[in-house]
Design a protein around this nucleic acid. Structure first.
Length: 300
DNA sequence: ACTATTTGACCACT
DNA sequence: AGTGGTCAAATAGT
């Protein structure tokens, strides 16, 4: 039985955690509002927002991890689950060992594009969480079995805005050489906003966010078409390969066309969002016997 | 046919 | 007993 002093400490501790959690949620909401502002990611406010998010998440982790020590001895509960029932699924001993895995290192990140972190994940579960509006999704590294990679992540939508903001908890490090790029499609930098919203599973979106996303998808499709139509505008940025091979557009995503909220086409030097987050298709085109590399936002 | 996702069941933990 | 994490059968997608 815990002493009154310990009980008071535990109460204060829990209150502190609750306050920090509230801070996390408010910060997430702030981030969502900042995210829809045109120049948000360029502004110092965005950096401050990210710092605050990180600080809150870190504080919460620290307090949560010290929970058990502060609360004293663990509760001992008998878990005799009674006799097996007729339709209960049978599970082997291996399952019992791995049922509740203990992760060593947890990192928290807030992002609008939870699945664009450069790694390949496989979803293995989804759960409604008490006190959370949106379900939590559980992912493991695609190479969990093949290469015994223990990396995992949990994705939890924090708000009901668009673009929706997600809290992503990462566990363990990748040990699978899961390269965050493949062929000519690449995705980088999980912290950057993805206004297309393609990365977000529909099951994680509210009806409101779904409507916004569909509009964004239509916009993206429109941009894709327009990008193809105005390919000629790339020509001024093309560089000739010294080996006599095809002339190539800079392959570092420099000359892409993107669109902002009011559907105005922008060149990359006019666009406020870092290109590291945009996924594109690369395609060789030929015109007047000269080959070009076209970078295109992929169709939906 | 194969792979990925969904979803209800199971079970550890509190 | 309630909650959250995981499993695995069912289902969907390619």
């Amino acid at each position: 039985m815990a002493s009154p002093l310990k009980a008071t400490q535990a109460l204060k501790h829990n209150m502190a955690i609750k306050q920090i959690e509230k801070g996390c949620e408010l910060t997430a909401m702030l981030g969502a509002h900042l995210g829809i502002l045109k120049d948000a990611t360029d502004s110092p406010f965005w950096n401050i927002f990210e710092e605050i998010s990180h600080t809150f998440a870190l504080s919460r982790d620290i307090l949560t991890k010290s929970d058990q020590n502060l609360l004293g001895s663990k509760l001992v509960t008998s878990q005799a689950s009674g006799g097996a029932e007729i339709h209960k699924r049978k599970r082997d001993d291996k399952f019992k060992d791995s049922q509740r895995r203990r992760y060593n290192n947890k990192r928290t990140n807030f992002t609008t594009m939870p699945d664009h972190d450069g790694y390949q994940w496989r979803k293995y579960g989804q759960k409604n969480i008490l006190s959370k509006i949106h379900p939590r999704s559980y992912y493991r590294c695609t190479y969990h079995k093949d290469r015994s990679c223990m990396a995992a992540k949990q994705v939890q939508q924090c708000n009901d805005e668009y673009p929706p903001l997600f809290e992503v908890n990462y566990f363990e490090e990748h040990t699978c050489n899961n390269i965050p790029m493949s062929n000519s499609r690449f995705t980088l930098n999980e912290n950057i906003l993805d206004f297309s919203g393609k990365s977000i599973p529909e099951s994680n979106l509210s009806a409101n966010a779904m409507g916004c996303r569909r509009q964004a998808d239509e916009d993206a499709a429109l941009v894709s078409c327009l990008t193809n139509v105005i390919t000629g505008s790339y020509n001024s940025r093309m560089s000739e390969r010294s080996d006599g091979g095809p002339k190539a557009l800079n392959t570092s995503i420099e000359s892409s066309l993107l669109i902002d909220d009011d559907k105005t086409l922008l060149r990359e030097d006019e666009f406020p969002v870092d290109h590291g987050s945009i996924t594109m298709d690369l395609e060789w085109l030929e015109q007047d016997n000269i080959q070009f590399l076209l970078e295109t936002l992929p169709p939906i």
